[in-house]
């Protein structure tokens, strides 16, 4: 049997899983809870600060990584779940799942690069 090339898809999925499990909850906590509840500085998410974060090349890279890997993770998980549910029309499910993740990632890249 030939060795599989699935590691490409799966390593992005696994990386996205780590991000979705560890980074996203922290981001939700900061943006959705900590700042509104006054646990952090009031101006922690102020416009000029955020602009500086997104304007920095490393900031862009990190944000793109978080968005792309999380989307890829969700797309792959959804496709596998569809497979488990017996929806096996491979190409349609593949295009729908990875397509949405791909388009959203491209949109994120365009927005990040335009800042």
């Amino acid at each position: 049997m030939a060795k599989s090339n699935k590691p490409i898809v799966w390593s992005l999925f696994a990386g996205g899983g780590m991000i979705a499990a560890f980074v996203l909850p922290a981001m939700i906590f900061i943006t959705g809870l900590a700042v509104p509840m006054g646990l952090l500085l009031e101006n922690a998410l102020a416009y000029d600060r955020m602009l500086a974060l997104v304007g920095n090349p490393i900031g862009k890279l990190v944000l793109f990584g978080v968005i792309f890997l999380s989307l890829w993770h969700a797309a792959h998980r959804l496709r596998m779940t569809l497979h488990d549910l017996g929806i096996r029309s491979g190409r349609v499910a593949m295009l729908a799942c990875y397509g949405v993740a791909g388009l959203a990632s491209i949109a994120a890249a365009v927005v990040l690069l335009s800042i």
């Binding site: 049997m1 030939a2 060795k3 599989s4 799966w10 596998m80 488990d84």
Partner: peptide
């Protein structure tokens, strides 16, 4: 790994 790393090996598992 000839078997385990093939498509029919670990890669068919969806971690149910």
């Amino acid at each position: 790994q000839e078997i385990a790393a093939s498509n029919e090996g670990v890669w068919d598992c969806t971690f149910v």
